[in-house]
Design a protein around this nucleic acid. Structure first.
Lengths: 156, 156
DNA sequence: GGTGAAAAGAACCTCAG
DNA sequence: CTGAGGTTCTTTTCACC
């Protein structure tokens, strides 16, 4: 990983459909050199894929919420993880330090579907003792772009 | 938006570099028909862009955390929003209902940079009275893929 | 590691039907 | 929307530095 690799990663986060030639101009290398670097970045798992960003509201998901989930005993963690991984409205699931065992980020159609997710789905998973839901009123920023520090983009 | 549009959106979320021909095969339309639908989906803002997914850890961000921020009075909301939008380690910022005024999702290098973000940056923004930080221990799932309900992918 | 040139393959746009 | 055609662009390959 040298500064050129970091800059390629940065550019691809800004435009996931950038061509090798465009990237090559950006980093001042030849296009085959960029092709080789991208191949290695993907191989190393630094670039894990490419995706289209979408407006969830226009796909009928009007509610975003964070849900803290308490689980009574660590023996239930694995079962919980397996269940939650399959729920389509759960975009993220993190195990966390603190009161709650997990924090979920969900995008769901409306309050009815949120209610159903909470009481019919999450609370029926073994070990779940409590959920605490924080509803998002408005979103200022919702990036996935992991910024690379300037020191890494230039020369240390 | 008909089922074919939903399927195109779904496929592009899975592979943001899918070609028009690949998508055309997936939805059983001709390639020019798909090109036109994508153009309209972008124009309507349903597809908002394309991005490479990356492994934040390999880019030196070892810590993910959620930070609840309390602000003493709504008059400080706008200033807070402006400041926070520029912080590179803050990937998301949501105004929320409940105790806290905002919830931030951050990815940062280490505990030192997290501490600096909290005490040197966030707590110095006018109106911020309190922050509560929830550190992520492990992540089960961190998608951006907004799943489209099966009813919409097929025929209602 | 990188370059440059050239080949091979796709992608995308246009347009008549 | 389709199908075909043409143009352009990407990507791969390879000899050489």
């Amino acid at each position: 990983m040298d500064p050129l690799d970091y800059r390629i990663v940065d550019m691809l986060q800004r435009d996931g459909r950038a061509t090798q030639l465009e990237l090559a101009r950006g980093v001042k290398l030849s296009q085959p050199a960029v092709a080789e670097r991208i191949r290695k970045l993907e191989e190393k798992g630094i670039i894990t894929g490419y995706t289209a960003r979408v407006d969830a509201t226009q796909l009928g998901k009007d509610i975003t919420a964070f849900i803290g989930v308490s689980i009574e005993h660590p023996k239930h963690f694995e079962g919980f993880a397996r269940k939650v991984a399959e729920l389509p409205d759960v975009l993220e699931a993190h195990r966390v330090a603190g009161q709650d065992s997990y924090v979920l980020k969900v995008k769901t159609a409306n309050t009815r579907t949120l209610d159903s997710l909470l009481v019919e789905t999450l609370r029926t998973i073994p070990g779940v003792t409590r959920t605490s839901t924080t509803i998002v009123l408005s979103t200022l920023k919702e990036d996935t772009h992991v910024r690379v520090p300037d020191e890494l983009l230039n020369g240390e």
